[in-house]
């Protein structure tokens, strides 16, 4: 009775989410299908193939477990490349300007970090730098480091390390919050002076969309499938050349 209600919850929360998973029976032998454990409630479930554009969610607690795979890695790579360009633009142009009685000031993100630093707010400056500049840059660098070689049929050296660090960088990147902060501060100043939103402000807006798109299209399952496929292909190629090299000797 309870279980039925919970599954309904799961389905009604979003049309895109369908509970396609089933629970392995107690005291049963390990089923052949791959198992998946819910990251939030640890419930073991059997992974089943999904129709396109669907998300499977946990039978018990309803959290999203996995999505149907597609060409998501190539899309993630494309978004990441575009995001790099936007990150550079957003950081090299002024975010906003201010005009009061003939005086004009404007600032870039880096300039704002430096202003805090110059006022001996080193920790706050470090926090702003880490969350708005460093984390997104690291996330994108890691994405390119992983996805470019995978696209070219290779496997990067420190694939696992990069894979584990990327979510951390994603978690601490607060570009979206920063953007809202800029808007709020411009509203605050709007009462006192003429504010001029800079081009970087729009670039940050696009950057937020692209970073979200990178995170949304990056699929961990497909990622490891591709890595395994590349590794197998490379092993086969290496084995093939060795055999050929040996042939004349025999």
């Amino acid at each position: 009775m309870l279980a039925a209600r919970r599954m309904d919850n799961c389905r009604t929360r979003s049309l895109q989410r369908d509970a396609q998973t089933s629970i392995p029976k107690r005291n049963n032998a390990m089923p052949e299908a791959p198992l998946i454990a819910c990251p939030e409630c640890d419930l073991l479930q059997v992974e089943t193939p999904l129709p396109p554009r669907r998300t499977a969610c946990c039978r018990r607690c309803g959290v999203a477990l996995y999505r149907s795979s597609s060409d998501s890695l190539d899309r993630a790579l494309a978004f990441a490349l575009a995001a790099v360009v936007l990150l550079v633009i957003a950081n090299s142009l002024p975010i906003a300007g201010l005009e009061v009685t003939g005086q004009h000031t404007e600032t870039t993100l880096w300039g704002a970090v430096q202003a805090l630093y110059d006022q001996d707010r080193v920790a706050v400056a470090g926090l702003v730098f880490a969350t708005t500049l460093f984390a997104p840059a690291v996330e994108l660098a890691l994405m390119l480091y992983m996805l470019v070689p995978l696209r070219l049929g290779r496997v990067p050296r420190h694939l696992s390390l990069a894979f584990r660090l990327a979510p951390l960088a994603h978690e601490w990147g607060l570009v979206d919050v920063f953007m809202l902060g800029v808007v709020v501060s411009l509203i605050k100043l709007g009462n006192l002076a003429t504010v001029v939103p800079g081009i970087a402000l729009w670039s940050f807006g696009v950057l937020i969309l692209l970073l979200t798109a990178v995170g949304a299209s990056f699929d961990a399952r497909e990622f490891w499938l591709r890595a395994a496929a590349n590794r197998a292909a490379l092993d086969r190629a290496a084995g093939g050349t060795r055999e050929r090299a040996l042939e004349p000797a025999t």
Binding site: T101, Q103, V124, V128, V177, F178, G181, S185, L189
Partner: peptide, 20 residues
């Protein structure tokens, strides 16, 4: 973290020696 960023932007922009 919103207010931290608001302060950051205000600190960077409002450096008008003759006004504020």
């Amino acid at each position: 973290m919103l207010d931290i960023f608001v302060v950051t932007v205000l600190v960077a922009l409002v450096q008008l020696q003759s006004v504020a």
